[in-house]
């Protein structure tokens, strides 16, 4: 393709090609400090292209494609090309990743041990991940945690942190010296602004951690905590995984091991200050 960029996020290499220069330019700027894929051979190819010959000129927009595609993906406006690239990379992971059990979760690390937070969209995964990283934790990722079925360890996937709507201002305040991408208004998911993970997160992106605590946060409720039964944890993990079924037995082994060995809590919170206090207290009590 005419414009291309290759990069590595944690252990996973990507190559992104585009008919138009804009998405690649935006991607290059924000992924400036990311390494190249190992051996120059990425794991996944992403393609960004015009929906049809005319759309190159008329209301230019971007279609998402690559090694793995969904048939009815809708195009995004060219101004949201960065988002298109991000979504396309996520799609490759969600549909094509077979080395790790993929959990839709944010992950942070301290002293070689990882805290995983998973929940529905809007539960605050990305926000809490970004805020914890501003308070001395190493950010491992805000979207996917990669669990190695063989070792049980979590591998980092520190892509750009994707902040949505109200979370944007909150994280801008908490991380005043953070490197942010352009504000993308009126995307299919509302307003989006990306935050580049800090230097520490990038420098250590190859270092896995031992999972130590599983949290299932829920935003918009009075502070509360609940210990979860192993069976519920297991079911919630299978729901939070995009490739549990496709992996077969290794997926089952990885999810069961997490459910059996790692303490798990559901936490409710009305605001992020309450969430952070609960997280720190639970971590200290481990």
């Amino acid at each position: 393709m005419r414009h291309a960029h290759a990069l590595r996020i944690g252990p996973v290499g990507f190559r992104i090609g585009s008919d138009r220069p804009e998405p690649i330019r935006a991607l290059r700027a924000l992924y400036r400090d990311y390494p190249a894929p190992d051996d120059g051979v990425p794991d996944f190819t992403v393609r960004l292209f015009a929906p049809g010959p005319l759309r190159r000129f008329l209301r230019p927009s971007v279609m998402i494609g690559g090694d793995f595609m969904i048939p009815d993906a809708a195009p995004l406006p060219l101004a949201q090309g960065l988002l298109a690239a991000e979504m396309a990379m996520n799609l490759q992971m969600a549909l094509g990743q077979r080395r790790y059990l993929l959990l839709h979760a944010s992950a942070v690390e301290r002293e070689g041990r990882a805290l995983l937070m998973t929940g529905i969209s809007g539960a605050g995964k990305s926000t809490l991940g970004a805020l914890l990283s501003a308070r001395g934790w190493r950010l491992m990722g805000d979207e996917f945690a990669l669990v190695d079925p063989a070792s049980g360890r979590v591998h980092a996937f520190p892509r750009l942190v994707s902040l949505k709507n109200e979370a944007i201002a909150e994280v801008e305040r908490a991380v005043p010296d953070g490197r942010f991408g352009p504000l993308l208004k009126d995307t299919p998911k509302g307003d989006i602004r990306h935050l580049v993970p800090d230097a520490r997160a990038l420098a250590a992106m190859r270092e896995p951690a031992i999972p130590a605590l599983l949290l299932f946060p829920r935003f918009g409720f009075e502070p509360a905590q609940r210990v979860l039964a192993r069976s519920e944890v297991f079911v919630r993990l299978t729901q939070a995984s995009t490739n549990y079924v496709a992996l077969g037995e290794p997926g089952f082994v990885a999810a069961r091991r997490l459910a059996e060995e790692v303490p798990a809590r559901a936490i409710d919170y009305p605001d992020t200050a309450s969430a952070l206090a609960q997280v720190e207290a639970l971590w200290a009590a481990l």
């Binding site: 051996d39 120059g40 051979v41 794991d43 077979r98 080395r99």
Partner: peptide, 21 residues
């Protein structure tokens, strides 16, 4: 072959084994 290529092919082999099952 380069290690990165070997890794991709090993993943593909595991995926195909599951597909076969």
């Amino acid at each position: 072959m380069p290690q990165a290529a070997a890794r991709v092919l090993a993943d593909a082999a595991a995926s195909i084994a599951q597909n076969r099952r």
